[in-house]
Write a protein that binds this DNA or RNA. Sequence first.
DNA 1: TCCAAATAATTCAACCAATAAACAAATCAG
DNA 2: CTGATTTGTTTATTGGTTGAATTATTTGGA
Lengths: 372, 372
Amino acid sequence: MTASRAPVRQSSVRAHNLALVLRTVANSADRPSRAALSAQTGLTRATVSALVDDLIAGGLLTEHDPAPRTGAGRPAAGLALSPGGPAGLGLEINVDYLAACVLDLTGEVRHRFVAQGDQRNLTPGASLAELGGLALQALEAATADGLAIAGATLAVPGLVAPNGIVRVAPNLDWQDVDAPALLNVLPGLGELPIAVDNEANLAAMGELRAGDGEPTFLYVSGEIGIGAGIVLDGELYRGGRGWSGEIGHVTVFPDGRPCRCGANGCLEQYAGQEAVSADADLAASALGIALAAVVNLLDISVIVLGGAYAPEFPRLRAGIEAELARRVLTAGLAPVTLRAATLGPDAAMRGAAGAVIQQLIDDPAAFLNGTA
Amino acid sequence: MTASRAPVRQSSVRAHNLALVLRTVANSADRPSRAALSAQTGLTRATVSALVDDLIAGGLLTEHDPAPRTGAGRPAAGLALSPGGPAGLGLEINVDYLAACVLDLTGEVRHRFVAQGDQRNLTPGASLAELGGLALQALEAATADGLAIAGATLAVPGLVAPNGIVRVAPNLDWQDVDAPALLNVLPGLGELPIAVDNEANLAAMGELRAGDGEPTFLYVSGEIGIGAGIVLDGELYRGGRGWSGEIGHVTVFPDGRPCRCGANGCLEQYAGQEAVSADADLAASALGIALAAVVNLLDISVIVLGGAYAPEFPRLRAGIEAELARRVLTAGLAPVTLRAATLGPDAAMRGAAGAVIQQLIDDPAAFLNGTA
DNA sequence: TCCAAATAATTCAACCAATAAACAAATCAG
DNA sequence: CTGATTTGTTTATTGGTTGAATTATTTGGA
């Protein structure tokens, strides 16, 4: 009945502490020493040393001899994520392009491939076969660098079930597509573990890594459809069935324009890509109304506008903020921050590759035991 | 940057497993044996025995000799939460009544005191002094039963800051009231640890314990104002500053009736207590529009209507469901369940007392170490 | 130049808690 | 009354953290 997310826990203490140390290194601006990690985590220096040894042996951390010096004493050995460690492959399929990229463990983009082209006239199999070509190129480029790809994540503009099946992708005209299976049958991709997630969700996680450190925000992706990724305390909120963030179909004008979903007055009809070009003021006002609802419900104080909204941000900002000021109950108590996304069209792809890396950082023990 | 909710963890393994065992007992319909707990948790029987010993010694569990017998073998000793263990005090202040109740560790209501009376003309101090009287009565009744009160929680119809200060309670005309401090100065209440939370949040948690086990739902409390408690996976979602769930000020008709918050067309103007009596169909439609937004955003599949909505439920249901069917994007993929709250007007008070108990169950080690 | 102070990292005995396996207790079936 | 069966406890072992002592490497001052 109550939150019982906790099977057992014997000596998986080590797994937890490995993750804690690795995460602390990943989130450090500088290259922390073992002693600094000990201070930050609260673990003893002895324990940190032992854990760091494991992480170095597993190829996740590297020691950098020249650490920034200050004062007397033995110089520290700076620790950082290993650029040669396991890497992540990000894949994206969208209405008018396909893309793939390789991120190394440090989050650096090592390779990037994009293929323009309308996908609406193609079958899922055909689109995915072409995307598989990009993926293979990326894999080869990565192995040429000596990078091992730990896994891949595919970003899709649609609803994705927990088992990875794309239930609906309206703008691609997909229905119940098992994308990982279709990719895995392609030559060279048979062994690759592939996860699938919603484009806005992954873009939100991409912005989280690229952003200013704010752990709770709403990412709104304005494409032909409008999706949103809800990031609460650094983690994506997916909802009971993984279908959260469908802000495009929040009602803005109850008796307004008919939407292709069957309802009237959905946000998408007033702030979709075409509507923004047609009437930016109306789009801003409609967005403001819908975003005010989000803030009132979830008490989220940071909103990031991405996709097609990012370049339009200067034209939209004032209109959105006016509605927020008027309609958010707590507007007087604390402000709502509005900003444009920083990653542009790469956000989803970057977030997809980042998801692979994030998983490694969140549970290094699984990786270490799986390989060692 | 990322979710790093994890300070350290040495041998707090025990704390975790104590909580795991206690929670497993609490969530069991029957009275599980040590062996059954071992099977359910994955811990060894030896470990479970050791943990159970601690919990019995601390007064949280009791052994019930006559366990339901089946088949051969040594008879099992049934374990259950101790009715004589630490109890929780629930307090509630609302526009037209004050209330207090005592819940024992098993969740049973042991005492209940309600004082009707309009609080709008009283100062916070005066209201809280009277509520303190109820609290004292409850404390005395509890001690007469041999119950020790572990703490209290106060339910308030307003925004509560994380430090327990009531920032705003519009319908009480409160602003920045430090309720625990005002209660603790009263004779006999000096030692009592008092937490404060929003009324809808606590009512939602009350419904969680009383409900059918569904761990993710939205509780909507229709009083003079409208609040909502968002329960995700058995835990309350509070938002960045604790101000989530203000569904009453979600915009339903952008150019509609002016609201006392300054905006136009807030849900509260169409589905507040008075509006429901005046026009139930309009209330249902407005509620449906706002709830559809919640479902689209959060992918919540269960909605519980409480407060004044509970008795009106039969009259509201069809209207709400019609809007949900029309406006929820995923309505065709999976249904949204709508039900009336079961606890009635006691939900918040019960939830408040339950919060004290829940804390004990979630972290028994803190209680055991604090007293032993 | 050399020694003391300072800081970083490692080594090692002790300890805490869970595990596994053997053992004791209590009942039923025949 | 005996054997099978299930519950619960006891005991030696193991994994992993801790704390103190030790080693390593630098700066600063006499």
